[in-house]
């Protein structure tokens, strides 16, 4: 464990708490893509299949349980408790375009050809693009509540911090995970546009609005 990864994970944790706070405080899941949240639940469930037979550490175990539980809880909130506040007509990204290629890539690139390992690869590729329905929705509506942008910024920071973590591990442990690194770089790149608007507008006290 190094500080980049620790702060990355804490940023991931913070993003989920911010999202729950957004839903609770506005009593609404307006502006949040159900599709992206469903993809994250899929990512965590398919990645953490090793939860019950591969012990890494208490930290690792606790985080995995938290990510699975919180992603399922968010789906419950969106699907049942705050269902009327979700507008499916603006959440229209075709998730087949993400699920299909991720499955193909997982069949081509994996560390061992076993069910959990192929699912693990699938989850890595899917996580890289799971934010796209959310960013697509943002692009469509052209604006976002400030708290929603904080959620996205914390999620993007988590991904960005994993990059120095990998560089650090390369020098200290002489180790590179090519699947995680490639997918991670793609995933971080997807946030660049968002970060630009976040830094130039939201952090200057303005509303998140995209140029028409």
């Amino acid at each position: 464990m190094n500080l980049f990864r620790l702060f990355g994970d804490l940023s991931h944790l913070a993003s989920i708490i911010i999202l729950l706070q957004k839903i609770r405080s506005t009593r609404s899941c307006r502006g949040i893509s159900f599709k992206t949240q469903a993809l994250y639940a899929t990512v965590f469930i398919t990645r953490y299949l090793d939860l019950f037979y591969d012990w890494v550490s208490l930290y690792n175990f606790t985080m995995k349980v938290f990510f699975i539980a919180s992603s399922c809880y968010i789906l419950y909130l969106m699907r049942y408790k705050y269902r009327p506040t979700h507008d499916p007509s603006i959440d229209t990204f075709r998730v087949e375009y993400l699920l299909g290629p991720s499955a193909v890539l997982a069949l081509l690139f994996h560390y061992r050809f076993t069910v959990p390992e192929v699912f693990w690869s699938f989850s890595i590729f899917l996580e890289a693009v799971a934010i796209l329905p959310q960013l697509f929705m943002l692009q469509r509506t052209g604006e976002a509540e400030t708290i929603t942008t904080h959620y996205l910024a914390a999620l993007g920071a988590y991904r960005a911090l994993y990059i120095p973590n990998w560089i650090y591990r390369y020098f200290t442990e002489d180790m590179v995970d090519p699947i995680a690194v490639t997918a991670g770089i793609v995933q971080t790149a997807l946030y660049l546009d968002f970060f630009y608007v976040y830094f130039t507008k939201v952090l200057q006290g303005q509303k998140f609005e995209l140029p028409a």
């Binding site: 464990m1 990864r5 994970d9 991931h12 090793d50 591969d54 890494v56 550490s57 690792n60 985080m63 995995k64 990510f67 560390y111 693990w120 994993y162 973590n165 990998w166 591990r169 002489d174 180790m175 590179v176 995970d177 090519p178 699947i179 995680a180």
Partner: peptide, 10 residues
């Protein structure tokens, strides 16, 4: 080896 899965990551 240099290339290995980082399974301790989340």
């Amino acid at each position: 080896s240099l290339f290995a899965p980082a399974k301790d990551e989340l």
